[in-house]
Design a protein around this nucleic acid. Structure first.
Lengths: 204, 204
DNA sequence: GTCTATAGCGAGATAGAC
DNA sequence: GTCTATCTCGCTATAGAC
């Protein structure tokens, strides 16, 4: 891809993240790209076209990333661990783009919206299938698979809302915590409260 | 509150939810309220003033609601159960307003933004304090309290993103599922995988 | 491939009659 | 308290020179 187009896209990502899509003007993007706003139309057909490019490539990259991280991982628990790690890591590394993906879909017209949602649904199905498979095989505790998959996906996606690159925890550390929370807590049957209390008291 | 003001507010909630704050024009709100757009300015000083009213009253009502639900509940596990139930129920019942609260804060100028965030932080502290207290007392499994509180709050808040009032599950049913997920799974130490596998196989 | 200039439109907000 | 009329501004997008 042409370097000017990349510059425009990066400027748009920063502005859509900071000000929102509708509050961002083409002139803002032009200013941050050090060109005139008319020049943007040589690279993108419209403002929506920029948004669609951001949303679609981010979702495709996320899908490719998770598929790469799952390659060769065999056991369902390990697959789930790898998937959660990958999802959370991506949402730390690509914070701005995924937040735009989460809140600016209303900027897409019908056809673009449909394409994006199809891509997103295909991605989410990777998680849903693993959760159902894990439950069927008895590796994960029984429960409403649909709701549990929403709970897991939304919880992991929301990391992008609170992650601070300069904060106490790195993306890798947060991925570790979430991997444990999801796979050894959310997807497992827990100890009865009394038994848990005892085990903790023993340790301390 | 005056009934015209209520009508304007409700129209704005629907439009901000459907189209986003910045994509909604005062003329859209006027049309849906069956008045002229100039008349809106008798009730609200500006477009931002409408947004601020929606955000702030919703957050205050959420706080009052959870405090009411926690009244007289003594045990920390029961308090957490009541809090999760209340949070999820409110996010099903007031889906539109809470989604606006989640994504339109960029429409607020500095002072309004600060007021809202202070209110929201106070609300979130209710959860964080309970989680820390429960961990200290050994009722909840040890872990990074900050991250776990984010995980719980974002997961429960995100119900507003996928809840469908006409869907398979009612707000009460989802509240039940989340209460269990949070209190008996996320906040507990889980059984080791082998032990869990056995117990499931016995049941089937 | 970038520019200047501008078309065409609709935005938020205000003035002042009733 | 609601209206009509309008101000002023900035928006997306296009035309056409270089």
């Amino acid at each position: 891809m042409n370097s000017t187009k990349e510059t425009i896209k990066k400027a748009a990502i920063n502005l859509f993240y900071k000000k929102s899509y509708f509050a961002t003007a083409m002139s803002n993007i032009a200013l941050d790209s050090s060109i005139r706003k008319a020049s943007i139309y040589h690279h993108y057909a419209s403002k929506e076209d920029i948004l669609y490019d951001i949303l679609m490539t981010t979702m495709k990259e996320l899908t490719i990333y998770i598929e790469t991280c799952l390659e060769g991982v065999e056991n369902i628990e390990n697959r789930m661990r790898a998937a959660v790690r990958a999802h959370v890591k991506f949402h730390c590394d690509r914070q701005k783009e995924v937040l735009i993906s989460d809140s600016e879909l209303r900027g897409l017209t019908a056809n673009n919206y449909k394409s994006f949602v199809a891509q997103r649904d295909a991605y989410e199905k990777i998680f849903q299938d693993m959760i159902i498979q894990g439950m069927d095989q008895g590796y994960f505790a029984a429960g409403d698979a649909k709701v549990i998959s929403y709970a897991i996906l939304t919880m992991c996606t929301a990391v992008a809302h609170w992650f601070n690159p300069k904060g106490r925890l790195s993306g890798n550390q947060i991925s570790n915590i979430y991997e444990e929370l999801v796979v050894t807590r959310l997807l497992r049957e827990s100890l009865p409260l009394h038994s848990f209390e005892n085990s903790v008291l023993e340790e301390e």
